[in-house]
Amino acid sequence: MDHAVKIAARDLTVDFRVPAGAIESHSEDGANARFQQVGNRTVLRALDRLSFEIMPGERVGIWGPNGSGKTTLLRALRGVYSPSDGELVVEGKTQSFLNLTFGLNEDATGWENILLRGVLMGERPGSIRAKMPKIAEFSELGEFLNMPLRSYSAGMRMRLALSVAMELPSDILLMDEWLSVGDASFRQKAAARMREAVEASKILIIASHNRKLIEGLCTRILTLDQGRIVSDQAVSGETKPANTKHRVKAGARRVKNKSS
């Protein structure tokens, strides 16, 4: 991989418009502070001026309570949400594993769902077919792959979807939460596989509330709360001070996302 892989965010902000009148008051306490007035619009500030850089080889855990902006950040990195303000540069091909069930068909077998999911994620049917034995082996689902998805437990679905995601080419793998659905042995195996895959030139970003899980897997943890980064620490223990600069400047809106 000779092209650059890198993520750089400067004051990355993502706002969701809120219908006029839905918010009764603007107060500063607790979750209410997320609703802000921008010009004459009320917005939900999902991500509030995040600044960070992620270099190749890093495995970054995003940790924080419900509604702290973890998934929104992953979607912004994927290129689904473009920055409302600030700048985000993503260099490299992203691949995501945000939603466990998307693209899957309940009546189709495991094999067919591997194909469906793979094609939706941008693979050619032929190339995903060639990868099927590896995907099947990693999933450890055995004969269940001949059964319709209806008969799968949540953990088995996760295995299927994750095994597909692992085989898709990417420089930056974005994952949400789902690893925690798996049992301990599969979790360890998947974690080992991710460590190996990320090794030198790739980036892994995984969001979870499960502190233990990401401490075991990641080299760095970004802690989010109320849409802001409250700490940015290396897993070895040393804490970098969080970037708390409050600059409100209309920045360039740029997402360089090479993913398909």
Partner: peptide, 9 residues
């Protein structure tokens, strides 16, 4: 919706 919010089609 789930596909659109993830797959960049």
């Amino acid at each position: 919706q789930k596909i659109i919010l993830e797959a960049l089609l």
